[in-house]
Nucleic acid binder design. Structure first.
Lengths: 66, 66
DNA sequence: TACAAATGTAAAGAAAACTTTACATAGCGG
DNA sequence: CCGCTATGTAAAGTTTTCTTTACATTTGTA
């Protein structure tokens, strides 16, 4: 799965830490998701969507390997 | 988090087993998600969205407790 | 009623998400 | 150059997701 978190975060002018705090996770969690180290839960995806003001589909999309 | 999987599954006329097979998980996984026994991963949410032909936001929404 | 399909659920175990702590590196303004 | 902010990442540990197996219950229908 690919994601555009880093881009949307730049658009909203938020640091990883600010985004993490806003949605209640650790900064490493944000970093790990951005770097595709793991797949977030749907609750997290919805919170990211809300905070970054884009749909889940604008943030995440499936790849052929998924 | 609440979900409308059971409803969308009825609209698409799919059993839990058929939906599970379509997206590559066990039937119990579908049942457990429908019953809010656990929160699915974002990959799963996107696959459900695709198979059920609705957006992730139509399938899942945050509650105040999330 | 009897059978079959669909669903609920439980338990044990594997795999993955997520936290905390910690340290390293890169970039930028003084 | 120095200090600060932002980011990368690793390791250990906890929690949660998800699978497999298995059995019970419900519901439709012949």
């Amino acid at each position: 799965m690919i994601n555009t978190i880093k881009i949307q975060r730049a658009i909203q002018n938020l640091t990883q830490d600010e985004l993490a705090t806003a949605i209640g996770v650790s900064r490493q969690t944000i970093s790990s998701i951005e770097k595709n180290r793991y797949v977030p839960s749907t609750v997290l995806a919805l919170k990211l969507s809300k905070t970054l003001k884009v749909t889940v589909h604008e943030l995440f999309s499936l790849e052929s390997t998924d």
